[in-house]
């Protein structure tokens, strides 16, 4: 059992965690005031939704066409697809970093198309700044938001143990192992403080054993804090073992065939199954369905 998991099991640090987050939903529009969005499962307004997203980097060659997807509040969804099919491109658009050719991005029903800074986004690489100590790296979102450095450090410090980074506060990024850098990137993403989190292949830089640990740990944190998350992966097992729904992306943009959502697989989760969810028939059924959609 990893240090991160151990920390997760004991007590109820969730309240402390939530208090440390800078802007928990503050300033967000009232969910009830907005219209329902496309792609959302029945009932309630989605935390995050894409409506007919057609994306392109150069304005000509389309990468994706008419992407509809939705993440309900408190839900972890996965987006799977082959390498190069446009997963990162979609996340960039959802994060507001690019403006779609057509379509909209809705955050709690509010149109945020092309507005960066409204969701927590963890990019494919850990992107720790080599010139800042770990604590200042994870504090970056707070400091950029105008908080004084001492205050930001005081907010972040108690979280280091929870994120399996105890003792690393004053280290430089180059002194950390891959797994620890990844957790530091998680902590930084967490301190961005939005209630919707986008993660781009967050576990791919880790070796197989570490990956399983960090993933379990992440799912635990997400559930405990009620985070809504959209997680990219190209690993079907990983997707099925963490998501409540898996969106399957298919297409080959580099061959002039824009990607589309080939289907959505609802995973019937049975996390308390003996031997773990990964050994159940439900897991296999969902996996088979995702594989067939991938083609």
């Amino acid at each position: 059992m990893s240090a991160a998991e151990k920390n997760l099991g004991v007590g109820s640090p969730g309240a402390g965690l939530a208090a440390a987050r800078p802007a928990d939903g503050a300033g967000r529009p009232d969910a009830g005031a907005s219209r329902p969005s496309a792609g959302a499962p029945a009932g309630g307004v989605s935390a995050l939704a894409a409506e007919g997203l057609t994306l392109s980097w150069d304005g000509e060659a389309l990468v994706t066409e008419g992407i509809d997807l939705a993440v309900m509040p408190g839900e972890v969804c996965c987006l799977v697809g082959r390498s190069g099919c446009g997963k990162t491109t979609i996340l960039h658009a959802l994060a507001g970093l690019t403006t779609p050719v057509s379509g909209r991005v809705l955050l709690h029903g509010e149109d945020v198309t092309g507005c960066p800074g409204r969701v927590s986004y963890m990019l494919q690489k850990d992107l720790l700044l080599p010139s800042r100590r770990i604590i200042d790296n994870v504090c970056l979102p707070l400091v950029l938001g105008g908080m004084r450095r001492a205050e930001a450090r005081a907010k972040a410090e108690p979280l280091f143990e929870r994120f399996g980074l105890a003792g690393c506060e004053l280290k430089w990024p180059s002194e950390l192992s891959g797994g620890m850098r990844q957790r530091a990137a998680f902590l930084r993403t967490y301190l961005m403080g939005a209630d919707v989190t986008l993660l781009d292949e967050p576990f791919s830089a880790l070796d197989a054993l570490t990956r399983v640990d960090v993933r379990r740990w992440f799912v635990g944190v997400a559930r405990e804090l009620g985070l809504s998350a959209l997680v990219i992966t190209h690993d079907v097992d990983e997707a099925v073992s963490m998501a409540s729904r898996v969106y399957v992306l298919a297409g080959a943009p580099s061959a002039g065939e824009p990607s589309h959502v080939a289907g959505e697989v609802v995973v019937r989760r049975a996390d308390d199954a003996p031997g773990g969810f990964e050994l159940t028939d439900e897991f296999l059924a969902a996996k088979r369905e995702v594989m067939s959609l991938l083609g």
Partner: peptide, 28 residues
């Protein structure tokens, strides 16, 4: 790394902050 700039944009960093935190150290 352009991804660092994208990351900082998602944190609502100003042009000056991107310069100070990312570009200047990268050029050092």
């Amino acid at each position: 790394d352009p991804d660092v700039i994208d990351l900082m944009r998602t944190m609502n960093a100003s042009r000056w902050q991107i310069f100070w935190y990312a570009k200047l150290p990268a050029a050092a």
